[in-house]
């Protein structure tokens, strides 16, 4: 399933990575933020929505990144370059991530910044939409969000252009041993 997911997601311009442990994923993340020039300046922040991943890692490594905020506000998210959140499911046949996004923070970090980093437990992989629909509970989740690749438009002369109102890059990070989800 992972391979299918990766092919589909890359087919819609997402970037897909996979790590065995949370520590490896964290190391990747810290390095990524540095490469992207995250800094304590408007436009260069990183914002992280609360998620199980945060609970089980050595948070200090993240907190040491200047300009990274664990308390998300609208203004910070609007001035962030990178937003990080954890997704709940991944649908292999379309390369789609699905999240209970009822908490507004999760939507702010995945819709306002230029780059969205989406963490996902490999165990959250499902074959397709019908499989997810049979597990979904809209009655207990006010806002369910599906994300398939970065924001796009073809409204000017039907030329595909990435990054309109949402992120122009979607970085998907699978973690095999990620506890506490689902």
């Amino acid at each position: 399933m992972f391979e299918q997911f990766k092919t589909r997601a890359e087919g819609v311009s997402a970037e897909v990575h996979r790590f065995t442990t949370e520590a490896e994923a964290l190391a990747f993340l810290v390095d990524f933020l540095r490469t992207e020039g995250v800094a304590d300046a408007p436009g260069q922040y990183a914002v992280v929505a609360d998620c199980p991943f945060l609970q089980s890692i050595d948070r200090q490594q993240l907190e040491e990144v200047a300009g990274l905020w664990l308390e998300v506000t609208r203004d910070r998210a609007a001035a962030a370059k990178v937003g990080i959140s954890q997704m709940d499911w991944a649908l292999a046949d379309t390369g789609t991530l699905v999240q209970d996004a009822s908490a507004i923070d999760k939507r702010l970090v995945s819709s306002l910044p230029i780059i969205h980093v989406a963490l996902i437990a490999t165990s959250g992989l499902l074959p397709d939409m019908p499989a997810w629909l049979s597990e979904a509970h809209p009655e207990t989740a006010g806002y369910l969000a599906m994300i398939t690749g970065p924001s796009r438009t073809a409204d000017i002369e039907r030329v595909l252009t990435i990054g309109v109102h949402g992120p122009e890059r979607l970085i998907i990070v699978f973690v095999d041993q990620l506890g506490g989800t689902n």
Partner: peptide, 16 residues
Amino acid sequence: LLTSYVSIITGPTLNS
């Protein structure tokens, strides 16, 4: 295969 975003809204949620 799917659009970039599908949002399913069931009742109001908290604002920021």
